[in-house]
């Protein structure tokens, strides 16, 4: 049996502790309220100089690494902004998302095409074209393929035209009599369109090849076959220079190997190509999207990011100024 003394102390302690808990609770509650718009206001987002909102981007898988790198830095700098990006291929992005008004930007590794312009116009989507960077489309063979170091544009066309050479010795007599195995970009890809435009023109692209959107698949295919040939954007080769051999391209002035230098100096023709992003003018009316577009154009000359991290050729100061002017005009038009 507990003594009455014990019971008394226990009672007092209990009462005291109850009071203490209630007091602490009241204090706690007073400091722990929020308003009905949710959130504790820690991240802000409603402040005057804080911009916030979603940014939706789709399009080319070639521009994807560049754009997502810029987005990563932008998202870190502006905690209120919620950017997302999908890698859909240039054409897929235009026809499924951008020209139906569902995305704010569309990346493309070739200029917008007439039927896409028409679709955008039908849906009342206006846009401007911004140059994001320059890419050197790279033709690769197996590192063990000692017989070939460079190809002329005509030889390249023979390999990839719609009625292509079947064996290497059909392309050049000293090449071995072995079958050519082709790995290339799928027809939803801007890389495919650009390759046709630069090399094949009206001859058309062969359908006798392994088509894919993934550079990795092309690289694996070529790396596993001494008589294979493939092409893709420069970034993959830049990050894995030992895995594959890049061919020099002879456009009449002797073979030129792809590199950041030859692409920016304009020697690497005809396969160096501009990469684009298309912001919708209506979206630029929103402050956070306009700010992102400005940020992106600023970053196009950032060598560490564009060349070092991603592997494309940064824009020149001159190009950047032009793009910025174009962008500011569009923003002014949108924001009135």
């Amino acid at each position: 049996m507990a003594s009455s003394h014990d019971a008394d102390t226990a009672g007092i302690t209990r009462r005291k502790s109850l009071a203490a808990i209630a007091g602490a609770g009241a204090l706690g509650l007073a400091g722990c309220t929020q308003s009905s718009d949710g959130g504790d206001g820690s991240d802000g987002g409603d402040g005057d100089d804080e911009i916030s909102g979603p940014i939706n981007i789709a399009g080319s898988s070639t521009v994807f690494p560049l754009m997502s790198a810029v987005m990563e830095d932008f998202a870190e700098e502006y905690p209120g902004v919620d950017p997302d990006i999908s890698s859909t291929g240039s054409g897929g992005g235009f026809s499924n998302f951008f020209c139906t008004g569902d995305t704010d930007f569309n990346n493309a590794s070739r200029p917008i095409q007439p039927e896409e312009e028409e679709l955008c116009a039908d849906n009342g989507v206006e846009y401007i074209e911004l140059i994001a960077a320059t890419d050197a489309l790279t033709v690769v063979v197996n590192p063990d393929a000692d017989f070939v170091d460079s190809l002329t544009t005509d030889e390249l066309a023979q390999i990839w035209k719609s009625d292509p050479a079947q064996t290497w010795d059909e392309v050049r007599d000293e090449f071995p009599n072995e079958e050519i195995n082709r790995f290339g970009a799928a027809d939803t890809s801007g890389t495919y369109d650009y390759f046709i435009e630069a090399i094949l023109e009206e001859e058309g692209h062969t359908s006798d090849y392994q088509a894919t959107e993934q550079d990795n698949t092309i690289a694996q295919g070529v790396a596993g076959d001494p008589y294979a040939i493939g092409y893709f954007g420069f970034a993959y080769y830049f990050q894995n220079p030992d895995q594959l051999k890049a061919l020099g391209i002879d456009d009449g002035d002797g073979p030129v190997k792809p590199s950041l230098e030859t692409a920016s100096s304009g020697e690497y023709t005809p396969l160096s190509r501009p990469l684009f992003t298309y912001p919708s003018i209506e979206s630029l009316g929103e402050e956070h999207i306009a700010e992102f577009a400005r940020y992106f154009v600023e970053q196009t000359t950032n060598e560490d990011l564009v060349a070092g991290d991603v592997g494309y050729v940064p824009a020149t100061e001159e190009t950047q100024e032009e793009q910025m002017q174009k962008l500011e005009d569009a923003i002014e038009q949108a924001q009135g």
């Binding site: 997502s68 990563e72 998202a75 919620d82 950017p83």
Partner: peptide, 22 residues
């Protein structure tokens, strides 16, 4: 998910059922 336009990469966790997600 690719067909319905789900994002390849997002930088913030979704905060509502109607935000884009990956």
């Amino acid at each position: 998910l690719i067909m319905i336009g789900a994002a390849t990469t997002v930088f913030r966790a979704p905060d509502s059922l109607f935000s884009r997600f990956s």
